[in-house]
Design a protein around this nucleic acid. Sequence first.
DNA 1: ATAAGTTACTTAACACCAGTAAGTAAAGAG
DNA 2: CTCTTTACTTACTGGTGTTAAGTAACTTAT
Lengths: 213, 213
Amino acid sequence: MKHENASERVRQASRSRRATQKEALRQTILRAAAGLFAEQGYDGFSMRQVAERIGYTPTSIYLYFSDKDALLFAILDEAFVRFTQQLTAAAATSTDPVERIVAIGQAYLSFGLQHPEHYQLMFVQRGDFLMQTRANEQEPRYTTFHLLQRAVQAAMDGGHIRPGPVESISDALWALVHGLVSLAISFPLFDAARVERAAEAAVRLVIAGLRRD
Amino acid sequence: MKHENASERVRQASRSRRATQKEALRQTILRAAAGLFAEQGYDGFSMRQVAERIGYTPTSIYLYFSDKDALLFAILDEAFVRFTQQLTAAAATSTDPVERIVAIGQAYLSFGLQHPEHYQLMFVQRGDFLMQTRANEQEPRYTTFHLLQRAVQAAMDGGHIRPGPVESISDALWALVHGLVSLAISFPLFDAARVERAAEAAVRLVIAGLRRD
DNA sequence: ATAAGTTACTTAACACCAGTAAGTAAAGAG
DNA sequence: CTCTTTACTTACTGGTGTTAAGTAACTTAT
């Protein structure tokens, strides 16, 4: 019996040690991949490049990520966590309902300008990413945008903005900031100063367009 | 002398016939490429596929287009001509300055929804396309957007909208429609009905946000 | 009419890519 | 000490854009 208990313990320990190592390499791959993506962008991002960085063959990566998409989505997932955090923080700052809407928009714009490559993939090239549900969670990722809908709803309930269809108004606001980020990212024409001015005009447009009285 | 004139004429004719044939094949390639792009989208678009369609080897295409980019830009150029036409036509319909701005926006949205693959490449993935100058023209392509700026300027001059920086207001409007198109294209979440409702909300937002009194 | 030159196209190849099947060496279990 | 599992590699398939070199046909000049 002693033997059995002892060997059982050893077996467990061995198993968990191996699991830890496995997870460690997974993280190594993920970090190398995220680094490569940040440096080279989507175009320069290949399984072979990632493999070379960590000193393994490309095929090894497939033991930890089912395919290139899975690896890419793991990178985007990290970015999405930061995205949600920044928007949530922004929503918490202002007390005035209209100002809160503006703050959310500015946080959104700020994220897009700071992580253009990630933004491009998250919200443009791989729109399906938003539809997926994150591991260990029930709700799909796009529910982060309910933050904006709630802010619009609150402002409307408080009589600060004109009544109207909450979802559609929220979508229009989303389109506005998304458009600003996209223009800033995609067009060399839009330098930082011009984007800044356009953002100011957008804020005025939104405030004048929504506000009651 | 007669001989020289005759041979000269023959030489010219031969040369122009060859030039015509050359142009004909160039058009054949372009049509096949445009067809492939329309059917398969950007991902399924390859030089080898184009070559197979026209019954030539891939290398032959390089005798008519310097590289894949050149071929792609030729396709986008055709789309851009249609884009400019549709926007110009829309701008000419309305007499009311504010309505004209709205009409331009609706034409923009309509184009994007009808040609999502082209739009994606023209205005998202290849923003540098807009910076290029079309063959036989002086102005770069992005000058089409001056249409919107002029409409805003006219509305402001006529006292129909609040005074403000024309370029920035125009950019904000552009961002709004561009964002709408992008969301509609990129997110499965946005079905036709939801986009339609968002567009209506956007129109109300713009009118209320811009209009004087 | 025949030789020389030009044009239009092809064949073969390079360097890359994502992904799979089969093999190998080491570690752990009995 | 053998058997099995684990971790990883080698070898390969079929795809990509692009270039260098070769060939066949047509044009021009003598």
